[in-house]
Nucleic acid binder design. Structure first.
Lengths: 198, 198, 198, 198
DNA sequence: TATGAATGAGCGTTCATTCAT
DNA sequence: AATGAATGAACGCTCATTCAT
């Protein structure tokens, strides 16, 4: 959970955070934690309820089927920002890409990020969100490079490949690094790609 | 799956492939298909037994616990080739990497490849194998580039980044492409990287 | 169900049929439809509330227990007419019974009739109502035959049997015909019975 | 359970009645009793298992879904005898029908008979069986009357009505009598019908 | 009267695993 | 090695009912 997700302990007006709404939030909080930790299939609804400190039946009041919890999580707690302006540094592809890497168009907690990759295989709505993120990453990389290197120096195809490569590296960083234990330095990759386009 | 996929280069007589041994193989065949399709957690042992056409009890004779099936699958049906020679094309980093992409150091059926990525989150032995693949990809890429570009032209660090990037793209190609629907052309990436090292 | 079915002969102003009272009626309407369709046990109160478009809690305001809905339905929407005069055609037992068949002493919608037979096994109040209907049918048949055939031609016992037979056929027609798909023509049976008493 | 159903305590060769088969029988025994008593919908599988003294899971080993228990019961423990010869008493329709009433073409325990009527509303396979019984009763009654009264005295239509009436009375006797508390004497009805055909 | 969140026992079902043969 | 009945804990889910507002 990052600064954008609805947390009851967040500062600001605590309005409407009592009564019914609270339980639903606590259920999602618990599910987020557990799905990220053990995976959707291996997490029993009873455990979600226990962690959320709500009776089991209430979970199904808000989410008629278990899968609805996951869908709600993805719907409400991940946001792929689309079409935002890219901050390009004219003439400097490397720094432009670096900035991009620092501000991924994904508003989601670390837990939600894990869920996004973990459950993409199994559940369409999650896969769709991941696909959207991928597309956005490619689009932004392409756009950023176009801005940084306005002269069509290097044909478009090469620029496209560069964008796809950078997107691949960013997703790799988000996902596989944790699994494989191999780190990758996005800044260095940005530099590499910039060189190749020079 | 079939006799051609797992270890085509394995020497030795194919003995013991009749009678009893057959059941074990059929169990693994079935599990491979089902784990790839629906995931380990969502596949009941009873379904494996049914698809393998063996009685349920026999499955537990060969694999006392369900997880042992997955472990056996990874142990016996994936092989990360280590330290093999890389076919480098001296002076041509692009073609060298392309060759690498064409012959991944992973001997495994498409189904086993899916399993490798799918279950890496949950099961240590799978994760270890995936990590090994990642390491091998990086190592080979590095080695290939060293061979192709013997002059330490471009510092080592840059070469390291290039290797890691290429490895990331290859894994992305193996895994995320299916999920996100975005293809990536490894040859073009090879070309890109070669340029950046020129 | 609608304003014509339950008690078309009930006198009195139709007052109180707005506002709050409406909810109660809609609940009973919904329950009638659902109990007839799927049976009492298989119909959740939540579904009744949904079909009635009332909140779940309100249902329990009017009917503290689920069974009360069924009891109210039977109480308020079935009426076994007792002791009404039978229109006999003197000397013509066949036509007399035919008339009886055409005007059963049961004021209830088709749905309520199904409920009456369906739930008789399980719930005493329903069984009692069905028993009452049966008794009334026998009584009327007996009385009709006595009127039609005033000379005690044929002993009383035979007349009693004829009445019971006709009642059985009428109930069979109401209930089993739908289940078994075999129709029976009450007029023809009336004719048959009249012959046997001649 | 009547003399035809498979009971372990039945005399005769006790072969194959050990091991697994016993549990299945005990489950059906328990279900028969409970379904007859409280109805299918109101009988939890856990109660069946408890009464049968088997673990709950075993019930689902033999009957994957609850409804399969009911279907098996109807399939294996009711038999509508079809096409058997009718013992007619030539010239005596009354006694012929009486004999028919005494030997219904239904082999089933009293409990199964209740189930047949109780659950006919809800479950197709039960309804089919009941419909078959109804058809057989009509067919036999017709055939018996044809045999007893070979001269086409009384047109065929009348004979058909007589058959249907008698069948209706027999089913009424089996089912509704218990619910309504009104008895009907099949012999007397047979007599009545015979008179009407004379 | 009206509302829907809350509650928890219980349901049908699944499933990994054991075991006697 | 082979078999499938047996076991019981746990699962996702349902549901009548309660309750605070």
């Amino acid at each position: 959970m990052d600064q954008t997700s609805p947390h009851p302990d967040e500062p600001g007006p605590p309005a409407k955070e009592f009564a019914g709404g609270d339980s639903r939030t606590r259920i999602l909080d618990a599910a987020e934690e557990l799905f990220a930790g053990g995976g959707y299939a291996a997490t029993p609804t009873s455990l979600i309820a226990k962690l959320a400190k709500v009776p089991k039946g209430l979970l199904f009041h808000y989410f008629p089927r278990k899968i609805d919890v996951l869908v709600a999580l993805v719907d409400e707690r991940t946001l792929v920002e689309e079409g935002r302006e890219v901050e390009a540094v004219p003439g400097d592809a490397a720094r432009t890409l670096s900035r991009l890497a620092r501000r991924l168009p994904l508003r989601a907690s670390p837990a939600m990020r894990r869920i996004l990759f973990r459950e993409a295989d199994t559940h369409g709505s999650v896969r769709e969100r991941l696909g959207r993120l991928n597309g956005e990453l490619i689009g932004r990389s392409r756009f950023a490079l176009e801005l940084a290197l306005p002269g069509a120096r290097g044909d478009r195809a090469r620029l496209e490949v560069a964008a796809a490569t950078f997107a691949a590296v960013l997703l790799y960083q988000e996902n596989l690094c944790q699994l494989t234990g191999h780190q990758i330095d996005a800044d260095a990759v940005a530099d590499l790609i910039a060189h190749s386009l020079a």
